[in-house]
């Protein structure tokens, strides 16, 4: 029994960090679900909105000694403002235009952070950022519990949105804009609003990621994180709130936790070949799912179930 325990939890630091990553992807995936799966906004710039929050948090903590809550609030606002601007820009674009514009937002954020030196530290990095509390060896674990709580809250909100008039407005906006307009629905405002709201959430998750890594680098904001989030969501089911969770467990959970911890790969492979191979597999998986099961493992929304439950809402 002891041997099994040691095998499973013998490297708690790696396990905890892997679970941090998993929770981060799940959280971002749930927010992307509201954008893409519900409202039909294909955001290919997740890393940008997340990174805006991450670096806002870091800059305020490192350079201005701002307290945790205020820095987190600013990170949330940074994501939200960037989301509102992006939402306004993409509101009248077609699907291809939305993908290109959101990718451009992420690229701008990345290049701004990388090229700026005084505040972001550029390629040298920015740090250090500490947890807002210290309870000794269990601080990591406590932070993980907080991340679980935040992710759970996001999942709960997404599920409630599906059962609310707001969710119905988002679905209508995503599926037939002219028809939604003809029913008095302010489509542009709705798109700007959902982009601001969900990007604020991405910014907040970025802020919460700061204390985990302690030191921020632009390389943390590459397209890889966006690809991970999209792969998880599309694999799990972009139209379902649980889709991001299922997909993240099967991708990040498998690669960043199970294989890294429990498959005895040589260190050199783990450090060099593994991350590249992971991205290649994620990309191939994305193509495979889009070709053969475009709505992912969980499939389409089940609105008829909601109708059956209307008497109980």
């Amino acid at each position: 029994m002891s041997a099994v325990w040691d095998y499973l939890f013998g490297s708690p630091a790696f396990l905890i960090f892997g679970t941090y990553t998993l929770m981060m992807i799940v959280g971002l995936g749930i927010l992307l679900h509201l954008q893409l799966g519900v409202t039909g906004i294909g955001n290919f710039g997740v890393a940008g909105f997340w990174g805006a929050g991450l670096y806002t948090f870091g800059i305020l903590q490192v350079h201005y000694d701002v307290g945790f809550w205020l820095a987190l609030l600013a990170a949330t606002a940074a994501g939200g403002v960037l989301g509102a601007i992006a939402g306004w820009v993409i509101a009248d674009l077609d699907d291809d235009g939305v993908l290109a514009a959101t990718l451009a937002v992420a690229t701008i954020v990345f290049l701004a952070i990388e090229s700026e030196k005084d505040f972001t530290g550029g390629r040298v990095g920015l740090g250090t950022i500490d947890f807002p509390f210290d309870i000794g060896e269990r601080t990591d674990l406590a932070w993980l519990a907080i991340l679980f709580g935040v992710t759970g809250l996001l999942l709960w909100y997404a599920r409630r949105v599906h059962r609310s008039p707001y969710g119905r407005l988002l679905i209508a906006t995503g599926t037939n804009e002219p028809l939604a307009r003809s029913l008095r629905k302010p489509v542009k405002r709705t798109k700007v609003g959902i982009m601001a709201l969900t990007s604020a959430g991405m910014g907040a998750l970025g802020g919460l990621y700061g204390p985990i890594v302690h030191f921020l680098f632009p390389t943390q904001l590459t397209v890889a994180i966006t690809v991970s989030v999209i792969t998880a969501l599309v694999l799990g089911g972009q139209q379902r709130p649980w889709g991001a969770f299922i997909g993240a467990v099967l991708t990040v959970g498998l690669f960043d936790i199970a294989i890294k911890l429990y498959v005895p790969l040589p260190r050199e492979v783990l450090e060099h070949a593994f991350p590249v191979t992971k991205q290649i597999i994620f990309g191939a998986l994305l193509i495979f799912v889009l070709l053969f099961r475009p709505l992912g493992i969980l499939g389409r929304m089940r609105r008829e179930r909601h109708v059956k439950g209307l008497s109980r809402v």
């Binding site: 707001y166 209508a172 599926t175 939604a180 029913l183 629905k185 609105r303 109708v307």
Partner: peptide, 22 residues
């Protein structure tokens, strides 16, 4: 609206702006 049931579609029509806040 693809994905919206008949009831969904009709509830969408009647819902007021203040009902549709995030």
């Amino acid at each position: 609206f693809a994905g919206l049931t008949i009831w969904d579609s009709l509830l969408l029509a009647v819902a007021q702006r203040h009902d549709e806040r995030p």
